[in-house]
Simulated assay, not measured.
Amino acid sequence: MKIAAYIEEAISVNPLLVIGSGSSCGAGLPGMHQLSKHLQENIVGHTGDDLAIWKEISRSLDKGLDLETALQSVSDISVSLTSSIVEQTWACIAKDEKRAMMKISMGEDICGFVKYFKKYLHTKNKVLNVVTTNYDQLVEFSASVAGLQYWDGFNTGSVAYPKQYNDFQARVKEIKNKRIDKICHVKVYKPHGSLSWFKTNHGQFVNLSNIGYSDLPLLRENNMNPAIVTPGIGKYLETHQQPYNNIMAEMTNSIQETKSVIFYGFGFNDIHIQGSFTSLLANTSTLKVILSKSLSESFLNLIEEGEIRNFVAIEEAKNGSRIVSDVVEENFFERNIWSFKELLNNAWGDY
């Protein structure tokens, strides 16, 4: 099979999109290296054991250890230190998110998501599924610009609270029964949380869409904590709570039902999330497209161990894209199709 035919088939059957940090870096948001530097510069004021533990983590980062491994290398991080890590992680990404939102709102489709969503707006597909481990809201911004509604586990509105999934399903069923063609939803599964999610000092989760980096002093004043799951050991503990476990359950359902999946900027380094894809990766009837500036060692190990079948993986190469696949004939393509935006431009035209 030719790669063009494989990609056309994969994107024509309403694929599940799995979006990792590589996509956000391409959009100008901080990556793990920048986040590590930000944390080292801004986590201050701790004393005693907290100070000693943070110095140990910081030394590991200076030696080149990645952030997640560095955080997991210490045995016990206190609630106070964890709160600082969460807050400064939120601050680092929130600082640049508004700039990306402005670009999208002014017509710059920085990731290709707007083009993708618009293509499906007038089809019979009432629901598009997106899984993202990113905290940013590039998917949500793009869906809104494209004219689609989205569900991320919360009600709609500037101040929103967790919404049960069966209520959302009832809404979609109502739309289908009325045969309204123009209403389409994006289900955005964010197992690590979102920049717009917060937890009050009473334990209530709330989605505040108009809160940004400049509001950090106000968040502190009102004891509002960002509800994001940091790259360290906390993710395995916090995601068993609401709203994360509901989101994970519905995400798993979407994974099981999909006919094709596109991974964009996903490094296959997150065991917590990747475990949800194990059966899908080995499923020979599910089409898989993997897009990355550079294919990770973890992904290449999956190939070597035979744990992924029926796939096309694309990475950057000189004057084009390198292709690794068990189903297509080519190993090089003359255009840059390793980014989602350029993949769509090649498949649908530069418009």
Score class of each variant (00 low, 15 high):
residue 43 I to S: 00
residue 76 D to S: 14
residue 17 L to C: 02
residue 75 S to P: 10
residue 103 K to A: 13
residue 23 S to K: 06
residue 25 C to H: 08
residue 55 K to H: 11
residue 114 V to K: 03
residue 35 L to A: 03
residue 70 A to E: 04
residue 42 N to C: 09
residue 13 V to Q: 12
residue 88 Q to S: 05
residue 71 L to K: 03
residue 81 L to W: 02
residue 95 K to G: 01
residue 87 E to M: 13
residue 12 S to Y: 08
residue 22 G to R: 03
residue 53 I to Q: 03
residue 25 C to W: 13
residue 44 V to N: 11
residue 79 V to K: 14
residue 41 E to R: 14
residue 52 A to T: 13
residue 108 E to K: 06
residue 70 A to D: 04
residue 15 P to W: 07
residue 81 L to Y: 00
residue 84 S to H: 00
residue 34 Q to D: 12
residue 11 I to A: 07
residue 32 M to Y: 11
residue 66 D to M: 08
residue 19 I to N: 05
residue 89 T to I: 12
residue 57 I to T: 02
residue 29 L to R: 01
residue 47 T to F: 11
residue 77 I to S: 09
residue 80 S to Y: 13
residue 34 Q to R: 13
residue 94 A to C: 04
residue 36 S to R: 01
residue 93 I to M: 05
residue 67 L to P: 05
residue 103 K to T: 10
residue 74 V to E: 02
residue 22 G to T: 08
residue 94 A to K: 04
residue 89 T to F: 08
residue 63 K to C: 07
residue 98 K to V: 15
residue 74 V to A: 08
residue 111 C to I: 08
residue 47 T to W: 11
residue 55 K to F: 07
residue 69 T to G: 04
residue 35 L to T: 07
residue 95 K to V: 05
residue 24 S to K: 11
residue 102 M to D: 14
residue 106 M to F: 15
residue 77 I to M: 03
residue 16 L to V: 08
residue 79 V to Y: 14
residue 45 G to Q: 06
residue 37 K to D: 14
residue 13 V to P: 00
residue 61 L to P: 01
residue 110 I to A: 01
residue 82 T to M: 15
residue 18 V to I: 14
residue 46 H to W: 15
residue 13 V to C: 10
residue 63 K to P: 01
residue 73 S to Q: 05
residue 98 K to D: 07
residue 60 S to D: 10
residue 57 I to Y: 06
residue 54 W to A: 00
residue 90 W to T: 03
residue 31 G to C: 09
residue 26 G to W: 13
residue 55 K to R: 14
residue 72 Q to W: 11
residue 101 M to S: 05
residue 106 M to Y: 14
residue 39 L to E: 03
residue 64 G to E: 04
residue 99 R to W: 13
residue 13 V to K: 06
residue 60 S to G: 10
residue 25 C to V: 15
residue 112 G to Q: 10
residue 88 Q to D: 06
residue 40 Q to F: 15
residue 87 E to S: 14
residue 28 G to P: 03
residue 69 T to A: 13
residue 103 K to F: 09
residue 114 V to Y: 02
residue 96 D to R: 12
residue 26 G to M: 02
residue 47 T to N: 13
residue 97 E to G: 04
residue 78 S to T: 08
residue 12 S to A: 10
residue 63 K to W: 09
residue 39 L to Y: 11
residue 14 N to R: 09
residue 76 D to Y: 13
residue 75 S to W: 10
residue 108 E to W: 11
residue 63 K to D: 14
residue 44 V to C: 05
residue 41 E to K: 15
residue 46 H to F: 15
residue 86 V to L: 06
residue 99 R to A: 15
residue 95 K to H: 00
residue 51 L to H: 04
residue 64 G to M: 07
residue 81 L to R: 01
residue 11 I to F: 06
residue 40 Q to W: 09
residue 51 L to F: 12
residue 11 I to V: 12
residue 58 S to F: 02
residue 79 V to F: 15
residue 56 E to N: 12
residue 77 I to E: 00
residue 66 D to G: 00
residue 95 K to T: 04
residue 47 T to G: 10
residue 87 E to W: 07
residue 37 K to S: 11
residue 67 L to R: 05
residue 67 L to G: 03
residue 35 L to Y: 07
residue 91 A to W: 04
